[in-house]
Computed example of a mutant assay.
Amino acid sequence: MGWVVGTGAVMGLLVITLGVAALRTGWVLPVSRRHVTRPRLYGAGALVLGASLLLPGLSALRLLPGVSEETRLLGGTGLLLAGLLLLLVSQLSPLHRDRRSTL
């Protein structure tokens, strides 16, 4: 079980690092650059997604105050969905796009 908690924590920290880089500098991974049109929104989504990956590891190590298991499950799922929604919205085309270029 320890490796599962450790893997989630490492992945969460990695995604949080990518989110901070996107928020501070607008840098996005080269794989995602073609798709991301709003890097700041992408960074916020990465922060929320990384937090949802990191929180179960913190609660397994008993570093968070005691809350019920249902609250942790629903909170983590809500953070995960909110992060994914922000990442999705960051890849949508901007609203102020020139309409003549699409014809």
Score class of each variant (00 low, 15 high):
27 W>P: 00
81 L>N: 02
10 V>N: 01
14 L>I: 09
82 A>P: 02
49 L>K: 00
23 L>T: 00
100 R>L: 11
23 L>I: 03
97 R>A: 13
71 T>R: 13
6 G>Q: 04
60 A>T: 02
38 R>H: 15
21 A>Y: 03
72 R>W: 13
97 R>W: 06
89 V>I: 11
3 W>V: 05
48 V>K: 03
45 G>P: 04
67 V>Q: 09
17 T>E: 06
5 V>S: 08
85 L>M: 07
27 W>N: 09
14 L>A: 12
40 R>E: 15
95 L>Y: 10
84 L>F: 14
46 A>P: 00
86 L>M: 15
1 M>Q: 01
55 L>H: 09
89 V>N: 05
75 G>H: 08
59 S>A: 14
10 V>P: 00
43 G>S: 12
34 R>T: 14
81 L>H: 09
30 P>I: 14
20 V>Q: 08
31 V>Q: 10
42 Y>P: 03
12 G>V: 02
72 R>L: 15
75 G>A: 15
10 V>Q: 03
93 S>A: 14
62 R>T: 05
28 V>A: 12
46 A>T: 00
13 L>S: 06
40 R>T: 09
18 L>G: 04
77 T>P: 02
39 P>A: 10
89 V>K: 05
11 M>E: 04
40 R>M: 02
9 A>Y: 02
11 M>F: 13
20 V>E: 06
103 L>S: 14
83 G>V: 07
